[in-house]
Design a protein around this nucleic acid. Structure first.
Lengths: 209, 209
DNA sequence: AACAAACGGGACACGACGTTCCGTTAGACT
DNA sequence: AGTCTAACGGAACGTCGTGTCCCGTTTGTT
């Protein structure tokens, strides 16, 4: 009756100092764990040992492996993504594709992505978090296309979100599905194919705007 | 000294009858397990119970969850993929894309794919099996492009394998990464984009053939 | 300096793992 | 049809990670 405030989850009252240190130590430990065990044989024990943190703390603040991975995704989402604005779609897309390529060449990011994907396969909260993550990223990047349309570089009604999806798909496909290495040539060809299709009007949605 | 023959893994000496029945029961149980637990909380116990098979049998014939998933992938690889030959690339690609779309709309296949991807993230044998699986599938499907080139529908040197990869990528991307629903429109647009790029010569490899 | 938020460590029951031993079922071949 | 044995089924066991509890200690905040 007198408890009007929320029961305060640990880490919310004193977000700075030790709390933040523990979170960062734990999150890097999660990536390490994903690197050499994968999400399937993810062990809370080892994570706590790696992070130099009490096992109890993990269960108190996160409670489950999926919550840890969810927080890892959250920490990635917190990092802002630079949106280029060079005045040329071709150059803008090249920069975005380059960033995607570099992300796919990073060992730790590869393990992180694979871990998140694996976790999303059996934890609905992560499935949802992943959906909204990509939705917001794609929406942000779509500005590049909007500007290109305004400049007259692309036909009106071009769907920027869909372009971004199809730009990212081939790299992710190689990382996750076909398991082939990615390189500059793959990234360049993808960008060329998408841009060419966009100019021809294959990405226009009739009812958009 | 007298043991010249291989130690014979169980199931190799009497491949028919009960052995085959057990394998099929186990593989469908594996899919069921992936469906409502995912690879991350995959339990050998439950699989044996679902399949109505002794736990010992699972460990004797497969030995690990990853080996079970590997066999599941193997059983998919054993099913032949129909390669269309209508005389028109556009129609051929439409048929292939349609098959891919239907695969992505099947609940059990979705769970299977996600399970295999998750397993590949932490089991090198599955990573390898997945790589060769897609390599052979893409190579088979590439015949469609070869024929189109011979008919003069596509420029010489067009890389059929790469076309197949980029055709499959957006559907897989939505299933695994962006977690958006797939539909006919997505499939059609993908096919249109790829075909258009192929006709323009964006998929030609200079040194091919 | 004082209060409490947040952490650390030990202990515990539980469930799944992976193995071993041994008895039972059912292909395969005469 | 009968025999041999490949392959299966079930029980038991030690091990490991899980998830939770209790209680003492550290540390951010005021």
């Amino acid at each position: 009756m007198y408890r009007l405030e929320e029961p305060t989850r640990p880490g919310e009252v004193r977000p700075g100092g030790r709390t933040a240190r523990v979170r960062s130590a734990v999150l890097t430990a999660v990536v390490d764990e994903l690197l050499d065990h994968g999400y399937a044989s993810f062990a809370m024990d080892r994570v706590s040992a790696r992070a130099g943190v009490g096992r109890t703390t993990l269960y108190r603040r996160w409670g489950s492996p999926s919550a840890l991975v969810r927080d890892l995704l959250q920490s990635i989402a917190e990092q802002t993504m630079p949106i280029p604005d060079t005045g040329s779609v071709e150059e803008d897309l090249r920069i975005i594709t380059q960033a995607l390529l570099e992300a796919h060449l990073d060992q730790r990011l590869q393990a992180t992505i694979q871990g998140i994907i694996a976790a999303a396969g059996c934890a609905p909260e992560i499935d949802e978090a992943l959906r909204t993550f990509f939705q917001s990223r794609a929406t942000e990047a779509a500005v590049v296309i909007t500007r290109a349309v305004e400049r007259g570089e692309l036909p009106p009604g071009t769907d920027g979100v869909d372009i971004f999806r199809m730009l990212a798909a081939p790299l992710c496909f190689r990382l996750l599905v076909s398991r082939e290495p990615v390189d500059q040539a793959v990234a360049d060809r993808t960008a060329a194919v998408i841009l060419h299709a966009a100019r021809t009007g294959l990405f226009t949605t009739p009812d958009a705007q």
